[in-house]
């Protein structure tokens, strides 16, 4: 087997005295879809943000496509061009139209000419089913539409891997489906994807592997059927039962919101 597309070795990350990641080892192969699940404050978003160096790891190494991202001399802008990132809060550029959101990065970063950038933009808008919104401004779109534009914007750069940071957590429940459908399509097209999510159905049906994190370490890593279907660890079972049936959960002392710094 060739080298994994994403490789994380002995990764540590601290915010001050707060150690959020305590030694993560993870490999994601080409075309693999990996969902990272876990309670808030478990460090899953931080792990994702370490992959494209939005967070600077305290210790350890990260490789993407064979290039060491954590090398101090790496051209991080060049590396990031190959890593698409989708945020919980969409982060579309509000002063630009939908098409401009897609064309400006292509032209400024990749140096594509106007016609080429417009062609790629139209292609990717069609891919997420939003061709008719090409001239709209982000503020006039629903959350689900904005997130699909954000996915198209990342795809227009031609990334090798895509990172999703809770892409549906800020959406109204009825809008989640459209975004997940786009992501499912991407997965079927063979994109390498790392997805931090609470959508268990998506994880079960689309992911090749599910990684359960808690307290800054990977507790369980395996196929969806194994991790979600028949978890081996008590912590995983506990988390899943609370997630799948929140009404049945009991009040616990001091478990929620530990670590923090996960959602802005």
């Amino acid at each position: 087997m060739s080298r994994p597309e994403i490789e994380v070795r002995a990764l540590h990350k601290s915010f001050g005295d707060n150690e959020v990641l305590r030694g993560i080892d993870l490999e994601i192969g080409r075309g693999e879809v990996v969902c990272v699940i876990g309670p808030s404050g478990s460090g899953k978003s931080t792990l994702l943000r370490c992959v494209n160096l939005l967070e600077e790891p305290s210790k350890g190494q990260v490789f993407v496509g064979g290039t060491e991202v954590t090398d101090p001399d790496v051209d991080i802008d060049a590396v990031r061009r190959r890593i698409g990132m989708v945020f919980q809060q969409f982060n579309l550029f509000p002063h630009l139209s939908v098409t401009e959101n897609l064309t400006l990065p292509q032209r400024r970063v990749l140096g594509r000419d106007k016609a080429e950038a417009a062609r790629v933009a139209a292609e990717n808008l069609a891919r997420v089913g939003l061709s008719e919104k090409a001239d709209a401004y982000p503020a006039s779109l629903s959350g689900g539409q904005q997130q699909r534009v954000a996915i198209a914007r990342a795809l227009a750069m031609g990334p090798r891997v895509m990172l999703f940071d809770e892409p549906t957590s800020a959406l109204d429940p009825e809008l989640v489906g459209d975004v997940l459908a786009v992501m499912r399509g991407l997965a079927e097209d063979g994109m390498t994807m790392m997805v931090v999510t609470h959508e268990m159905t998506f994880a079960r049906e689309v992911a090749d592997r599910v990684v359960f994190m808690d307290g800054g370490v990977i507790v369980e890593d395996g196929s969806p059927g194994q991790v979600i279907g028949s978890p081996r660890h008590e912590r995983t079972r506990h988390f899943l039962s609370r997630l799948l049936d929140p009404a049945m959960a009991e009040v616990e002392e001091g478990t929620s919101g530990q670590g923090g710094g996960e959602t802005p």
Binding site: M85, F87, F93, P105, R108, V109, A150
Partner: peptide, 9 residues
């Protein structure tokens, strides 16, 4: 963050 992750310097 969005701009940097798209590869903007």
């Amino acid at each position: 963050e969005a701009a940097r992750s798209l590869g903007f310097s």
